[in-house]
Design a protein around this nucleic acid. Structure first.
Lengths: 337, 337
DNA sequence: AACATCAACTACAACGTTACAGTTGGCACG
DNA sequence: CGTGCCAACTGTAACGTTGTAGTTGATGTT
């Protein structure tokens, strides 16, 4: 077989120096039991020979792989890139590598991904779960290692599970307040089907609208494509909404298409508020008003929470909600009528 | 220590069944040496007890981790998502997990990423290298496993290294032909600095322009921000280009900003051709004419090439150039003058 | 001077898996 | 009926690392 690493082993270093492998191990890991003088010599020799520890061997022995897993719902939403970026950056800083999986919005795939990750000895896992409880259960059945739920609707408040996401209720409130403030009365929510966060969003929306004394309309199909079709239909009706709030910028893009199809101009005939602030959203014609949530930061904190838990540190706030921000641009205006 | 997997081990299964661990191993791996009858029984018992192999142990023994690495230049370009998506999809299909790293456009980080991946016993690596030769050398110094260079300027034609990318010369030709066909004479190339592919692009552009009997202008700064500034300046000059070709859609977005700053309307005063066809590019105002390259397919083939090489199969075309496509939209038109 | 104490090491086993050299028993063949 | 052969197993060692239980020799204490 081809060897992955033809470098020296720890045992080899020991032979070269005429000492025991244990001594080398202790020296390299900075553990007590060797003299400072020897520690220095070992480090020098290791560096000279370009020694790199074999992670498989270490993982087998200490049951720690120095790898963190990240399972996301899908990889076609550019927002996830920022999340991965933040997660991997923080992980690498602490010497962890990351393993990425995508559930492709299929909950059985999600479960099998999680199991595949478990027996790779992952030290911790961040999941943007399709079904919060199910994903969690799969992981915990196989492992007692830390998990952090990302962008998932609040569910378990248990201390063994952490979570982080943008502040969902603030997001809905900002969007509704903005549109109501502009004078809109008929406001719709266009939501992606199938996500655990969707139903929470819907109920938050309903509550905010009720508080404003308005009737709420929710547009949500069985699939993304169907949702778009329903949107076109809703926009063609007489009492069509004069403004819609969407679950994501991507969905907002589809609403742009739907509006064009229905012959409506944005923002003159229809105001649109997105959610995510993709890097391209301000370049849309017209630039999209949207809720910005710092996904990079979410990813970063997800990783640092896991690492802190692995180090046995106390986690200050195990359930975090990051503030979100409304970016007002050109896709919202006062209603025409 | 906490155990990652509390499930049974192979040895445990052997004890339960009263046979030797070797027999269990052979049965589970479908190797000859056990009767069909026993093989079936072992499989049944394994399934019943939810046995999952310990990858660290296997990796240690067989020097194969069943993991593929993917190192990309940075994670802020949405195009990479499609690449990762294709790569991870194909990898998972064959039972491989993927390890992701980003070099953040820093070549020393790139080298250390590669070394970190080497001693994790990675079976194969796909690199979108900053410096083609350097990245390769780092990997090959530590390992003799397959590599595939992604989106990298043609360099080594050696058979031990594979490569895949969009057809760069076709891309430039399509863009130039399109603009020349519209009647443009003063065409600029706006390019991202620092990438090995950039210089190749520049020379291809020069060649195409010479073939068309036109002078070529290249706009390229030391950094992305600087490039934008240079673009603004170039667009303010009297003999400003009437059309520009950019290295990426993201850069094209910046050109949109630069054009706005210079008081030019697209496509009336300036035609723009991008490169990538990001999902949002057709929603820009105006919709961006761009070169589409199927990054998903690039990622998918990168993974399958690696896996084929690991299986010892013959690779049909170890240096692949995927066809690219010009998507004509609203950002290009005949020059005004 | 006898003994405890301790730092600085060594020896050994183990983690879970797989490769390979043995071992067993049954069957065909001269 | 002994021999050879083969299929179907078992036993053992090894992959590279680390933790723990020794072992050594020097130092300090009474």
């Amino acid at each position: 077989m081809r060897r992955a690493s033809n470098g020296p082993t720890l045992k080899g270093l020991a032979a070269i120096m005429g000492i025991s492998p244990s001594a080398v191990s202790m020296a390299l890991n900075g553990r007590p039991g060797v003299s400072d003088e020897l520690r220095e010599r070992v480090r020098a020799v290791a560096a000279e020979h370009g020694y790199l520890p074999n992670f498989a061997a270490r993982a087998l022995r200490v049951e720690r792989s120095n790898m963190l897993g990240l399972i996301s719902r899908n990889l076609s939403n550019p927002g996830y890139l920022r999340l991965i970026d933040g997660f991997s950056g923080a992980a690498e800083e602490h010497g962890y590598q990351i393993l990425i999986g995508t559930s492709d919005l299929d909950s059985s795939r999600e479960a099998s991904m999680i199991r595949a990750m478990t027996n790779r000895q992952l030290d911790g896992l961040a999941i943007a779960p399709i079904e919060g409880e199910a994903a969690l259960a799969t992981w915990r059945a196989e492992s007692d290692r830390p998990v952090v739920l990302v962008n998932s609707a609040r569910s378990t408040k248990s201390s063994s599970v952490m979570s982080i996401r943008g502040d969902a209720s603030q997001a809905v409130r900002l969007a509704v307040d903005h549109l109501v403030g502009l004078g809109h009365r008929r406001i719709g929510l266009v939501t992606n089907p199938g996500l655990s966060s969707a139903s929470e969003r819907v109920s938050l929306f309903r509550r905010m609208m009720r508080a404003a004394g308005l009737r709420s309309r929710v547009i949500s199909g069985g699939s993304a494509g169907e949702t778009v079709k329903l949107t076109v239909r809703a926009l063609s009706r007489d009492d069509r909404p004069t403004a819609v709030i969407t679950d994501s910028d991507l969905l907002a893009h589809h609403v742009y298409d739907a509006a064009a199809e229905a012959g409506l101009r944005i923002p003159h005939d229809l105001s649109v508020v997105g959610h995510d602030d993709l890097p391209t959203s301000h370049l849309l014609g017209p630039a999209l008003t949207t809720i910005a949530v710092d996904r990079f930061e979410i990813g970063r904190q997800a990783a640092t929470m896991l690492i802190a838990a692995l180090n046995g540190d106390e986690i200050e706030r195990p359930h975090r909600e990051l503030p979100v921000e409304l970016k007002v641009r050109q896709s919202t205006a006062q209603p025409a009528e």
